[in-house]
């Protein structure tokens, strides 16, 4: 997600850690001071995650991204059957105040889109790694996943990015 990240000046803001599962929260909730990063996923520097299982990769935006964006009020996604390209945009997320492009971490064919997000965009906030997934892609080149960040690397990336704002 091409969201320009920034951080609060407070020292304890956005402390990041790996947790086994994100906490489920109601769609509209107070901003949290803790963003979760899951093991077993790959992460892009534009704050999307990828979960590769078998021949399909599932893509969404990270907890860190949704935390910065605020409440999501609209998610614009492509139609199944289209293609995505690594680092190119495939959709957009709208919050109360801002619009952010969503970039795909990998290239491939879109095989499924999360239609639930049309009616319940807040799932991106409440469950960014599960119910808030966005598209499923059949990767055209699985080796593209190798250049993405693992959870520890992504956690460090977020800390550094926040510290620079």
């Amino acid at each position: 997600m091409a969201l320009r990240m920034w951080a609060s000046s407070t020292a304890n803001a956005l402390k990041l850690s790996s947790v086994s599962r994100p906490h489920l929260l109601p769609p509209f909730s107070f901003s949290r001071c803790l963003s979760s990063v899951l093991d077993g996923l790959k992460y892009a520097d534009s704050h999307e995650w990828v979960k590769h299982e078998g021949s399909v990769a599932t893509i969404g935006i990270t907890d860190h991204a949704q935390d910065h964006l605020g409440e999501v009020v609209y998610v614009e996604l492509p139609e199944p059957g289209g293609t995505v390209s690594k680092k190119s945009g495939f959709g957009a997320v709208e919050s109360v105040k801002a619009t952010s492009d969503i970039n795909s971490p990998i290239s491939g064919e879109i095989v499924e889109v999360n239609k639930k997000l049309t009616e319940t965009p807040g799932l991106v906030n409440s469950s960014p790694y599960e119910d808030g997934w966005m598209i499923k892609v059949k990767p055209s080149d699985p080796s593209e996943l190798d250049s993405l960040m693992g959870p520890k690397e992504y956690t460090k990336f977020c800390e550094e990015e926040d510290a620079s704002h």
């Binding site: 609060s8 000046s9 407070t10 803001a13 509209f28 107070f30 901003s31 001071c33 605020g70 109360v96």
Partner: peptide
């Protein structure tokens, strides 16, 4: 108080605190 400061008209201003913009 958890203010997230952003540049606004040449000033450093709080765009949001702990509460979401919605709330």
């Amino acid at each position: 108080h958890g203010g997230k400061m952003v540049p606004f008209a040449g000033w450093s201003m709080p765009i949001q605190y702990k509460d979401s913009i919605m709330d």
